[in-house]
């Protein structure tokens, strides 16, 4: 019986060492991702505070001004992450969402892209000139701007669909995100 206990003790020790070595590997991996800026973390975007940026003031339909919670999602026809985010929206669409499509060469090309991605055209804008993004000073795509009753609440980059999911509803929006990225006017 003593031999069995010794074997268990040795295996237990080896297990602990292996688990800690694995922890060390994960830490190293996270360090490498942080150094190479490969982390899946959203960055807050500073919205302009010196002018009116309600949806109607930046070239979007006026009825959006009265929406109690509006998620303005900026996607591009040429970015891979935008495609994966659009794919995610197929499974989890939101009535609060309005897509602003960037970098389409024409309205028709943009409409085709939206149709391919299954995004409703009555809840999207093809921003061929890029005026909407310029008005919000958004130069990183994909990103999101959130409005409450026409008032801008926050804007941030969206590196993955995972980061967009909690923002799609006011009930799931994390308070920490509001604090970090909130730019109130």
């Amino acid at each position: 019986m003593t031999f069995v206990w010794i074997a268990i003790a040795v295996l237990g020790l080896l297990l602990a060492v292996c688990l800690l070595a694995l922890v060390d590997q994960y830490r190293t991996l996270e360090l490498i991702r942080a150094r190479l800026k490969l982390e899946d973390n959203p960055e807050p975007i500073q919205l302009p505070v010196d002018r009116l940026i309600a949806p109607s003031a930046i070239g979007l339909p006026a009825e959006l001004d009265s929406e109690p919670y509006l998620v303005l999602l900026f996607l591009s026809t040429s970015c891979t992450t935008c495609r994966s985010i659009a794919d995610g929206l197929r499974k989890q669409n939101s009535s609060n969402l309005w897509v602003v499509l960037q970098q389409a060469h024409s309205e028709a090309e943009g409409a085709q892209w939206l149709a391919n991605m299954g995004i409703a055209q009555d809840r999207s804008t093809v921003d061929v000139s890029g005026d909407v993004a310029v008005a919000l000073e958004i130069d990183v795509i994909p990103s999101v701007a959130i409005y409450r009753n026409g008032e801008p609440l926050l804007a941030q980059t969206i590196p993955s669909f995972r980061q967009l999911t909690p923002l799609l509803s006011p009930h799931t929006m994390p308070r920490s995100v509001m604090k970090e990225g909130t730019v109130r006017t």
């Binding site: 003593t2 206990w5 010794i6 268990i8 003790a9 295996l11 237990g12 020790l13 297990l15 602990a16 688990l19 800690l20 694995l22 922890v23 994960y26």
Partner: peptide, 20 residues
């Protein structure tokens, strides 16, 4: 020795739960 074996296993469980 049985108590020591138990301690090593407890350590492995604690490491897995709290750090891994």
């Amino acid at each position: 020795i049985g108590q020591f074996a138990g301690l090593t296993l407890a350590l492995a469980v604690v490491v897995a739960g709290t750090q891994l």
